[in-house]
């Protein structure tokens, strides 16, 4: 069974870069696909690759990473400025980052029908 785990930005915003990456990677190593609200910083993306490489062994083959974000090129300058200001204060919440275990994504590519959705918002889980 394939599990998608949604992680709201609020779950990682107070963490250091190192802890953010560890948190995301630990979920991926449980064979789950992370759907993160927002984006990591560019340096964090590179660190995520670095930490992934350090974790590779016979069972864990690495990750597939994809960042989806709205195209801002055609937006008004004022909109972009507002977005930049909000990002500066609150972190980059625009877009979605998807991180999956490479072996699981490979299986999905072979047979897209295997996808079965099971989202587990962390927040709700904690309240229980």
């Amino acid at each position: 069974m394939l599990t998608l785990q949604f992680i709201p930005y609020a779950e990682i915003e107070d963490l250091t870069s190192e802890k953010r990456i560890s948190k995301l990677l630990n979920v991926v190593k449980e064979n789950k696909i992370v759907v993160l609200e927002g984006r990591l910083r560019k340096e964090e993306e590179a660190d995520l690759i670095k930490q992934t490489m350090e974790s590779i062994d016979e069972d864990f083959k690495g990750i597939e990473l994809s960042v989806i974000f709205p195209d801002m090129r055609n937006k008004m300058a004022l909109d972009n400025l507002r977005k930049l200001f909000i990002n500066l204060l609150l972190g980059d919440r625009t877009g979605i980052t998807i991180i999956g275990p490479a072996s699981v994504v490979k299986e999905i590519k072979k047979d897209p029908n295997k996808i079965e959705l099971l989202t587990q918002p962390l927040r709700r889980k904690k309240k229980r």
């Binding site: 690759i49 590779i56 083959k61 690495g62 597939e64 490479a102």
Partner: peptide, 22 residues
């Protein structure tokens, strides 16, 4: 080259033995 995944099994396709590929 920078990559996000490395699978030793991919190298087996090029005639390497398992030890070499790992």
């Amino acid at each position: 080259g920078i990559a996000t995944k490395i699978d030793y099994e991919d190298f087996l396709k090029y005639g390497m033995n398992e030890r070499e590929a790992k």
